[in-house]
């Protein structure tokens, strides 16, 4: 009798277990079904190509010659990169271009503070400053190309009226071309940072400002001791996404300068594009892609660590 009852509980236990694992199994299958289109797509379109990039970086292969002409050459592509003036120029230009990020952020924060507190027509201003961000870069670039026209463009005509005799020729001047691109890039990016900053400002508790008002604090004091520290997570987010976005700038270069004049506006992505799709040099372009990947990867790692360490939540 006793043994019988033990066996029934055991049986019960057993059947419960199998039932549970059955449910788990079906959950597993259902889960996989839900995520499989995404996984499949990502594997084919991102994972496989990025692995291939790392492999092809060690090969010498012109795409037009067929796969049997492919030769493995070890680190030769990377060694060649260190002697490639255009590549070095690209890295330097990418580094300079990063300055657009803090400038964009300062302008955006300034505008955001005014829009958040002190103006009527808030939504008009949001839309107005956001317009360049949603507009197509190609169309915008074409407009700026004409605005920057050396002799007849509106910008230089205004400068000449203001008494500047020899205004820069902007995108056709090697000394000014990169700066011109940076100006346009800042103009495009401000809207995005502005919207994010306004949202950040709205999440700061009003009581803090009221308390400071009672203590008789002035605006600058309030900005330095309340707004600035409490907005730092937002600033950090904008800094990182901004830097990563600055590495991806392609359309502006492709439409306006094609890396010129005299390589003054070449950047990693543009150099990669030229080597891959104009010279069809697969191996070399892949080596550039690996470098690009490593740059963006290390910034992402900094973001990971930084989010935990440097940001006052």
């Amino acid at each position: 009798m006793a043994s019988n009852s033990v066996s029934t509980t055991e049986e019960l236990h057993q059947s419960k277990k199998t039932r549970k694992s059955k449910i788990e199994k079906s959950e597993n299958l259902v889960g996989l079904l839900f995520v499989s289109p995404m996984l499949l797509g990502i594997s084919v379109i991102v994972l496989f190509p990025i692995v291939a990039t790392f492999i092809l970086a060690f090969a010498d292969w012109k795409f037009v010659t067929g796969i049997d002409q492919l030769q493995w050459i070890g680190f030769d592509n990377f060694i060649a990169l260190t002697n490639d003036e255009k590549f070095i120029k690209s890295v330097i230009n990418n580094a300079i271009f990063i300055f657009t990020v803090p400038i964009t952020m300062i302008c955006a924060l300034f505008l955001a503070i005014i829009i958040d507190k002190n103006v009527y027509l808030k939504s008009y201003f949001k839309v107005a400053f956001f317009m360049p961000y949603i507009s197509s870069v190609v169309a915008i670039a074409v407009v700026w190309q004409v605005l920057f026209h050396p002799s007849q463009g509106p910008i230089n005509q205004v400068l000449m009226t203001l008494g500047i005799e020899n205004p820069p020729t902007w995108i056709s001047d090697p000394n000014f071309a990169l700066i011109s691109l940076m100006i346009i890039h800042i103009w495009i990016s401000i809207g995005f940072s502005l919207i994010v900053y306004i949202a950040g400002l709205q999440s700061i508790p009003k009581e803090l400002y009221e308390a400071a008002d009672i203590d008789g604090a002035n605006s600058w004091y309030k900005f330095r001791n309340i707004t600035f520290p409490l907005i730092s997570p937002t600033s950090f987010f904008l800094l990182i996404t901004g830097i990563i976005a600055s590495f991806k700038v392609f359309d502006l270069i492709a439409v306006l300068t094609e890396g010129g004049p005299l390589n003054s506006t070449t950047m990693l992505v543009w150099h990669l594009y030229e080597r891959a799709f104009l010279d069809l040099d697969v191996g070399y372009a892949s080596a550039i892609a690996v470098v690009l990947f490593l740059f963006v990867f290390s910034i992402t790692i900094i973001q990971w660590i930084g989010q935990k360490k440097w940001v006052n939540y």
């Binding site: 190509p49 990025i50 990039t53 990669l272 891959a276 697969v282 892609a289």
Partner: peptide, 15 residues
Amino acid sequence: TYMVPPQASLVPQFI
């Protein structure tokens, strides 16, 4: 995969 800049996988994608 979000860390991968789209241009880094462009060449094999093309092939």
